[in-house]
């Protein structure tokens, strides 16, 4: 069994929130092998907002999935908040997602049968917060993303921007230390995308969290503390 017991004590004391060391990831084999990541290494300090940019197929999503524990690298290691993600077992990954990392997906990732408030409340239910506390927190988060009047609407009844704001509110619900957003404005129009980007910047600052966001959006790049360029699975200089 695994997991948090395997986290080295000294790693927790390092100042990097995310440490990626020599990560490689290949899909398929032989002639059909696709090298999504090749020996990628970088670190992200706590409270830093990093934009990950690159063309489609450059390996952005693979890298984010390896950081978030949704994928395992073939080589190298990923350490998030002192935990070596690539060696975590199922329960360790669950704990990581529940307590440390939050996702914002390009496709929003909301549960369609749940209302906005219920979607936001999912991470809070995982922590078994009392209902009044949970409801208060949900209300605050929806107000934060400007959807205080849409608590009972379901995703299918909201616009893409609204859905993404609900997704951001849900991502913030458990006060994660690391926010991973995979092209959060990819399905939004420019204006809505800019609003979402501004919101992300604001909440990252407000909550004091670390964020890594893959994007094509120049605005987001400009709002970020640092930009990582990925090309053919390798980090390149801008």
């Amino acid at each position: 069994m695994t997991t948090t017991a395997a986290v080295p004590a000294q790693a927790a004391t390092t100042d990097a929130m995310v440490r990626v060391e020599g990560v490689s990831r290949t899909y398929g084999s032989g002639e059909n092998a696709v090298h999504a990541l090749r020996d990628v290494s970088f670190t992200i300090a706590p409270g830093e907002l990093v934009a990950l940019v690159g063309r489609s197929g450059s390996g952005k999503t693979t890298l984010l999935n390896c950081v978030g524990g949704l994928d395992r690298p073939d080589a190298g290691r990923v350490v998030v908040d002192g935990r070596e993600v690539s060696s975590l077992g199922e329960s360790g990954l669950v704990e990581l997602r529940r307590d440390v990392v939050s996702y914002v997906f390009q496709t929003f990732g909301l549960v369609p049968v749940l209302s906005a408030a219920e979607n936001v409340g999912v991470p809070l239910r995982l922590r078994k917060l009392p209902a009044p506390v949970r409801e208060e927190r949900v209300r605050l988060l929806l107000d934060l993303v400007g959807l205080g009047d849409h608590t009972n609407q379901r995703p299918g009844e909201m616009s893409g921007g609204q859905q993404q704001r609900v997704a951001i509110a849900r991502a913030l619900a458990n006060s994660p230390r690391l926010l991973i957003a995979d092209e959060p404005t990819g399905q939004l129009d420019t204006a809505t995308g800019q609003a979402v980007m501004a919101l992300l910047r604001a909440v990252v600052e407000a909550e004091g969290m670390t964020a890594i966001i893959s994007t094509h959006d120049p605005l987001m790049m400009s709002l970020s503390d640092r930009v990582l360029h990925l090309a053919d699975g390798r980090l390149v200089d801008a």
Binding site: G68, L70, E90, S91, V94, E95, R97, R98, D99, S102, Y103, F105, G109, L110, V111, P112, V122, P123, L126, R170, A171, N174
Partner: peptide, 13 residues
């Protein structure tokens, strides 16, 4: 997909 998203936000399998 919905169940995968729930897993992604920390719901155990």
């Amino acid at each position: 997909l919905e169940l995968a998203r729930l897993q992604a936000v920390g719901v155990p399998r």
